[in-house]
Amino acid sequence: MVAQGFTVDLDKALVFQVGHLGEAYQEWVHQPIVNKEGPRFFESDFWEFLTRTVWWAIPVIWLPVVCYSISVSIQMGVTVPEVASIVLFGIFVWTLMEYTLHRFLFHIKTKSYWGNTAHYLLHGCHHKHPMDGLRLVFPPAATAILCVPFWNLIKLMSTPSTAPALFGGGLLGYVMYDVTHYYLHHAQPTSEVPRNLKRYHLNHHFRIQTEGFGITSSFWDNVFGTLPQSKSAKNRQFLSKRRMRFI
């Protein structure tokens, strides 16, 4: 790919190349390469290792933290029904965070060298190589860092006894999000609901990247008006406009 006189060499480590694309980066990164073999990010084997995560590491690492957090609230006197409702609310809060982060951070427009580089590491690589199975879930080290401000925010929103359960619910929502995301890319669902969800998400990758920001559901896309229309709906709208011109 040649852009602004710069050629991205896909056979070399990509992270420190993509920044040179400048304003052409957005077009380049949204031209997917459908290959299960992911590209190399860094020349360093150590940093390259940190960018690769198997999907099952997410539940193995974080579900024990979820269970511990919930148990702390129970030990502090919160009843089991109350904890259940708090956890459900935490999952609900996560779905809003999922949508907001995906729409406003993961799809931020960049053109500077370091802006492009950071965006590629954060989310651009996923759009360029959507079938890279080792870079579909968030690296645990990065998640651990992000848990710190999330926990501090939770403490401001709740009481000392309910904060652990709310944190656990939000973290459980994240786990559900990451394993669902992997499933949508690599599984072949046979039942209607997951099949429609897979179609909905792949539409975001391969047809219109500016809509369809939900992963686990389309709820917030409905709320905020970013639910993509089906091709048939767009065709009907187009034909309706054409008919209006002749009236």
Rank of each mutant, 00 (worst) to 15 (best):
K231V: 07
E211Q: 09
H185Y: 02
V29G: 11
W94V: 09
L122Q: 03
W55V: 11
A118M: 12
F219M: 14
Q31M: 04
P32K: 09
P149W: 10
Y120K: 02
H123E: 06
F16D: 08
R199H: 11
M131Q: 13
W151K: 03
L171Q: 12
G225L: 01
I215P: 01
L122R: 01
V8Q: 07
Q31A: 11
I61V: 14
R207I: 13
N152L: 12
A142L: 12
N203P: 04
A13Y: 03
V29E: 12
K241M: 11
L105N: 02
L184T: 13
T100S: 15
P59R: 03
R52Y: 07
G77Q: 10
G22L: 10
V93H: 08
C67P: 01
S85E: 03
I70M: 11
Q209L: 06
F213V: 03
P228E: 05
L202S: 07
I74N: 01
C67R: 11
F46Y: 15
V93T: 13
Q209D: 15
F238P: 00
H126E: 09
F167E: 10
R236E: 13
V83N: 02
Y113R: 00
T180N: 09
N152V: 06
F167A: 15
A3F: 12
Q229L: 15
I58P: 00
G169P: 09
V2Y: 08
E48N: 08
Q229F: 08
T7E: 08
N35E: 14
L121G: 06
L122K: 01
Q26F: 11
I70C: 14
L101I: 14
V148M: 02
L156T: 10
I61L: 12
A13H: 03
G173D: 09
G22R: 00
H20R: 15
I154A: 14
T117I: 03
F6P: 01
T117N: 04
S161L: 08
I154Q: 02
S161R: 06
V72W: 02
L227T: 07
L146M: 13
I154C: 13
G38F: 12
S73M: 10
V29R: 13
V54Q: 11
G170K: 04
D45Q: 08
G5M: 06
N196I: 08
